[in-house]
Design a protein around this nucleic acid. Structure first.
Length: 156
DNA sequence: GCCAACGTTGGC
DNA sequence: GCCAACGTTGGC
């Protein structure tokens, strides 16, 4: 199983939205960055994903979800009414992909950005690098364990 | 709302 | 293919 971290604005789609309907898969749409998209394409069913809340009051890792469907064309790219509409994406060769994810758990407490920065074991995470803007990024097994341990939970 | 960082666009 | 302009991200 591979591990990932995905950024989201909780006002739009946060861990609470997954928790609210724990049986329902949510489509992770709207990724419009090529590097992040390429990571999305390599996700497989069962992969774990740390949900990171950004652009909000409580910034940090808030929970864990799991991939239930690997990459498929992101429908919002063809929807003129969607904020993610991409008129330049060819219908016969979709530019952007989505994956489906399902709730696993909320962390007992949010792991703040400061807390993450305080851990030497996490210093290499792209998330913590200066100027980083990647919205989907790989997480090493060691980083994953570190994060969950900090959160007071079990490992993988 | 500010601003640094960085990706994308488009003219040449 | 270069590079300036522009837009977006995201913490503060």
């Amino acid at each position: 199983m591979a591990c990932w971290l995905a950024k989201t604005e909780p006002a739009e789609c946060g861990i609470a939205d997954f928790e609210r309907a724990p049986e329902a898969a949510i489509a992770w749409v709207g990724v419009r960055n090529y590097q992040a998209r390429n990571y999305l394409k390599t996700m497989t069913e069962g992969d774990g994903v740390l949900v990171y809340h950004s652009s909000c009051k409580l910034i940090g890792v808030a929970g864990v979800v799991q991939v239930t469907r690997s990459a498929y064309p992101d429908p919002t790219q063809f929807d003129p009414s969607s904020p993610y509409h991409d008129p330049k994406s060819p219908v016969d060769a979709p530019r952007w992909v989505a994956v489906d994810m399902v709730f696993v758990r909320c962390l007992p407490q949010l792991l703040s950005l400061d807390a993450l920065r305080s851990m030497p074991a996490l210093a290499q995470m792209p998330l913590l690098q200066r100027g980083n803007r990647l919205s989907v990024m790989p997480v090493s097994a060691a980083e994953w364990d570190c994060v969950l341990q900090m959160a007071g939970g079990a490992g993988r």
